[in-house]
Design a binder for these strands. Sequence first.
DNA 1: ATCCTTATGTGATAAATGTTACTGTAGATT
DNA 2: AATCTACAGTAACATTTATCACATAAGGAT
Lengths: 210, 210
Amino acid sequence: MQNTLKNIFPNFSNELLSTIEENGSAQDFKAGTILMRTGQYIKNTVLITKGKIKIYREGEDGGEFLMYYLQPGQACAISMICTAKSEKSQIMAKVVEDVSVMMIPLQMMDKWMMEHRSWYEFVIETYRSRFEEVLEVVDNIAFRSMDERLEFYLKRHSDACGCSEVKLSHQEIATELNTSREVISRLLKKMEQRGLVKLNRNQIELLIKN
Amino acid sequence: MQNTLKNIFPNFSNELLSTIEENGSAQDFKAGTILMRTGQYIKNTVLITKGKIKIYREGEDGGEFLMYYLQPGQACAISMICTAKSEKSQIMAKVVEDVSVMMIPLQMMDKWMMEHRSWYEFVIETYRSRFEEVLEVVDNIAFRSMDERLEFYLKRHSDACGCSEVKLSHQEIATELNTSREVISRLLKKMEQRGLVKLNRNQIELLIKN
DNA sequence: ATCCTTATGTGATAAATGTTACTGTAGATT
DNA sequence: AATCTACAGTAACATTTATCACATAAGGAT
């Protein structure tokens, strides 16, 4: 077990890993579980060891605007940030593929920051990369039109899973980009005509490299 | 001098304040100066003691999409985040009102995190509040239409300056919301008809409380 | 096979936003 | 006062995105 954790978080020092074992509690959640809601208080930092969690903003109409995904070896930046004052969450976190996580009580956060260099670096790097990711999201919605955003979205997905097939329905994509299914269907059709993708039921194959 | 800094950053411990005096370099910049460009490497963390800095994303066409403003007592979250690896900046920072700043060499960042509790708390709080602010920006562009965004934008401005007059041209507003002047003019006219604002040359008066 | 549910394709139309082109106006400049 | 320039108003039109209304298809369940 120590070993697996070591593999997933290769940069953590051995002492840190033991401390995590001691103080964290390993938990599993099924796909569909909502781990965090807007307005809810945050009591734990979450380290993902297996599966996938979607971090999104919820619109009044129930839109699920995608911010980013959390995958093994990553942690929820928001839950780290809200540490000190156990602030309210500003986002929603939903399990999209069954996950295993380590729940770390918030008090540990501050403590480890001082005691474990590798924890400190991990936290800072988590902040940095997420901030950057969100900035990129802003860029996309501020400066790009839907067809470009869709292309970007598909690439992001295929990068994340490492394969060129994106297994999502048009409806799911539409929800995450906060538009309607028809729009996505139409744009995908155009992309197919341009030879960028191949469309199948519940699956889109990217024909572009990179 | 120590005294002023103490007033502007009331939560900093006295030792921290002295250390800042010793290691930081006080500098002034005129309105219009670009302090940081996209793609540029970051060498300093910036503490604002006077004036106002605009943090924005630049579109290919030169759009200046507003993320947030930095004011006295605040620091650039991005420059802090990019610390360790002296990463490239993802944003633009432009002085909008003559500023005085303390430039802190990046090496200090990590050092002080360990040594000064009040610095640590300041950094974490900076991260948190900026992240939140950016999330709110995402919300706005993802879920709201231009008229709502404009209203939000005006409120934000009047909150920031504490008065109900926003001294900006339609063109400036349009640039920051990445739309065109005509659109802003139209929407403002509608708002005026609804009794929400009073329009004057280079100035918009908000007639709504909060 | 037949039925059912979910996913997808597509036209018609509406609404929001962007663009072009021009007018008017206030204040600064000379 | 005459002129200039930046700012603001607005009509007409183009484009993009959203919505409505169906048609069709694919795959699972019976």
